[in-house]
Amino acid sequence: MKAIIDFLYANPIGCLASIDEDGRPHVRPWRFLLEQDGKLWFCTSNTKDVFCQIQANPAVEFCSTSQDFVTVRVSGDVIFGIDMNIKRKMLAMNDLVKSIYKTPDNPEFEIFYLKHGQAAMVDFKKEEEVALRCF
């Protein structure tokens, strides 16, 4: 799992896929923010459609690709959290998140991690799977 986490910190920008109200996939740009105690943490606003989508169907997948064509996909079920320490870390680590939410107690600021998930790392240049891990 360390290789997956290191990759995500080095390549945090990717896409998150969820299922919309009509059962159709919806993909949007997203950012991995933090690993804590084996959990991969992300955030969103509870005013966005995606928040409602993942509450209704918590199955999501996040994908990120490096410049040298290595890709990591992580999938699992969203578990929303209320840990103020995680929120503080996210705000301290990321200026964009801080500019949007300002404080950890912002009522729109939602954090979540993936549970019952899998992570796969694939090197497309070598056409091989580098790692497959469950978490």
Rank of each mutant, 00 (worst) to 15 (best):
M1V: 05
K2V: 12
I4Y: 02
I4Q: 03
I5G: 05
I5L: 09
I5Y: 10
Y9N: 12
Y9L: 02
Y9W: 01
Y9A: 11
N11L: 05
N11D: 06
P12M: 10
I13V: 07
G14Q: 09
C15D: 05
L16G: 05
L16A: 09
A17N: 03
A17H: 04
A17F: 10
S18R: 06
D22Y: 11
G23V: 09
G23I: 08
P25K: 08
P25C: 12
V27C: 15
V27E: 04
V27R: 03
R28F: 05
W30A: 15
R31Q: 14
R31S: 08
F32S: 05
F32V: 02
L33M: 12
L34R: 11
L34I: 13
E35D: 14
G38V: 02
G38K: 10
F42E: 06
F42T: 08
S45Y: 07
S45E: 00
N46F: 10
K48F: 05
K48I: 00
K48E: 11
K48S: 15
D49W: 02
D49G: 06
D49H: 11
V50F: 13
V50S: 11
F51Q: 04
C52E: 15
I54W: 00
A56P: 07
A56V: 09
A56Q: 10
N57H: 14
P58V: 06
P58Y: 04
A59F: 12
E61F: 02
E61A: 15
C63E: 13
S64G: 03
T65S: 13
S66C: 10
T71I: 07
R73D: 01
V74K: 04
G76Y: 12
F80I: 11
F80K: 08
G81N: 10
D83M: 05
N85K: 14
K87V: 03
K87L: 01
K89V: 04
M90A: 04
A92R: 07
N94R: 06
N94I: 00
N94S: 13
L96M: 07
L96Y: 14
V97S: 13
V97D: 11
K98T: 00
S99R: 09
S99C: 05
S99H: 06
S99I: 06
I100E: 09
I100C: 03
I100K: 07
Y101M: 01
K102D: 07
K102V: 15
T103S: 13
T103G: 01
T103V: 15
P104Y: 08
D105L: 11
D105V: 09
N106V: 02
N106W: 04
P107V: 03
P107N: 11
E108I: 00
F109W: 10
E110F: 07
E110Y: 05
I111P: 05
L114S: 08
K115Y: 03
Q118M: 15
M121Q: 14
V122F: 14
D123G: 04
K125G: 12
E127S: 13
E128S: 08
V130T: 14
A131G: 02
A131D: 08
R133Q: 13
C134S: 13
C134D: 14
